[in-house]
């Protein structure tokens, strides 16, 4: 194991390249959006998500129950406070046990206006596999928590521990003749609930 390490480092060090400074981003040259919320909604819908505007968590269930796919008889897990599911993660021994999940309801930390992506760190869920294995995903997001672009997103993130993922729309593939199909291996649908107003 040590062998490869030494060989690679020796090879790299045997050729010294003139230094090139790491660039500093000039934020004045980056895109600006007048209306972050409108831009976020446009982007999220472009990537196949459905966006709902609500005043509070309390109204989310009612909206969900109106949707054709949703059925409270199905397996529903939630890590959103005030939005209970019928599947308890406390008994779960292995990630494979989440395979029965129909709906997973989680909170996102913040959204990105330019691309509809939402940051979901591992501590928003019981097990990170929940984000991917569920048939349908619901992400609850405060409209005040929107960033314009990925530069701002990473600045906001700073150092974080463990795992995290940006989710932009439902899983998809175009591997068969370039026809877009939603629901590849991850969720088939993504509903985003935006709460309240923008900053």
């Amino acid at each position: 194991m040590r062998k490869g390490r030494q060989i690679i480092l020796d090879r790299v060090r045997s050729r010294v390249l003139p230094d090139r400074a790491a660039p500093q981003i000039d934020w004045d040259r980056l895109v600006r959006y007048d209306d972050l919320k409108a831009q976020f909604c446009d982007s999220a819908e472009f990537v196949g998500a459905k966006v709902h505007h609500v005043d509070s968590v309390a109204t989310i269930r009612r909206t969900l129950e109106e949707s054709a796919e949703y059925d409270s008889g199905k397996v529903i897990a939630s890590t959103v406070e005030g939005l209970e599911g019928n599947f308890s993660a406390s008994q779960v021994q292995s990630p494979q046990e989440y395979q029965s999940l129909d709906w997973m309801l989680i909170r996102g930390r913040f959204g990105v206006a330019e691309n509809g992506a939402i940051w979901v760190p591992a501590d928003e869920v019981d097990d990170r596999v929940q984000v991917f294995i569920t048939q349908h995903l619901v992400i609850v997001l405060e409209a005040a928590d929107l960033e314009p672009h990925m530069h701002a997103a990473y600045q906001r993130l700073g150092r974080f521990e463990g795992y995290g993922v940006f989710v932009s729309g439902p899983s998809k593939t175009a591997d068969i003749e370039q026809s877009l199909v939603l629901g590849a291996h991850g969720c088939r649908t993504l509903d985003i609930f935006l709460i309240g107003r923008c900053k």
Binding site: V47, N115, G162, Y163, F166, V167, S168
Partner: peptide, 15 residues
């Protein structure tokens, strides 16, 4: 031609 991939996963250490 997507604004970002559906999933951008950051792995820091094992689960």
């Amino acid at each position: 031609g997507q604004p970002i991939t559906t999933y951008t996963s950051h792995f820091q250490g094992p689960k």
